[in-house]
């Protein structure tokens, strides 16, 4: 991905050279042309077209924000309820993610989801121990984590 962005910037600079016009407008035009060229040459790159990756990073950021909103609402509702009837607990969750970077992002996301908090990551990085505010539905919680967060992170790192 880094290579493709670098190449795109270089194409834009070459475009500015060709026009001998050093304005931001020319840079943007050159950058758009570079995007088109890199898209046409995408089969020569070992990995995917980089705008798709940028798009999935943007989606991940939006997921972070919306989860933060939802979890705040959940926590505030628990606090404001006159009687506290939750069953907290710690459950183990096995992840399929491999690299340290992916697991860090996943545990940050879990810290921001409604009613969950990462307590511990095991040494091999395959099990996360998560403190849940309401543990009644462990399966549902882990399914949610697996289907939304892991998928979004894999979209970023594995394409």
């Amino acid at each position: 991905m880094g290579q493709q962005i670098l190449l795109n910037i270089m194409i834009a600079v070459v475009w500015m050279f060709l026009n001998s016009d050093w304005s931001p407008q020319q840079f943007i035009v050159g950058y758009l042309i570079g995007i088109l060229l890199i898209y046409l040459l995408r089969r020569f790159w070992p990995n995917d077209f980089y705008l798709r990756k940028l798009w999935s990073i943007l989606l991940l950021l939006l997921l972070f924000l919306s989860e933060l909103l939802k979890s705040s609402i959940t926590v505030i509702r628990q606090i404001l309820r006159p009687k506290l009837d939750v069953q907290p607990g710690i459950f183990a969750y096995t992840t399929e993610l491999k690299s340290d970077w992916e697991i860090t992002v996943l545990s940050c996301l879990i810290c921001l989801t409604p009613g969950t908090l990462t307590l511990e990551v095991s040494h091999d990085g395959q099990t996360l121990y998560i403190h849940a505010m309401d543990i009644e539905d462990v399966d549902e919680l882990s399914n949610q984590i697996r289907n939304t967060f892991e998928k979004a992170i894999k979209e970023v790192t594995r394409t």
Partner: peptide, 22 residues
Amino acid sequence: LSAFGLIRLPDVYMRSHAATKS
């Protein structure tokens, strides 16, 4: 509200929920 939650919730972990998120 999250300061209120810090007073109200029973143990460290649940207080941490309130403190980190809201």
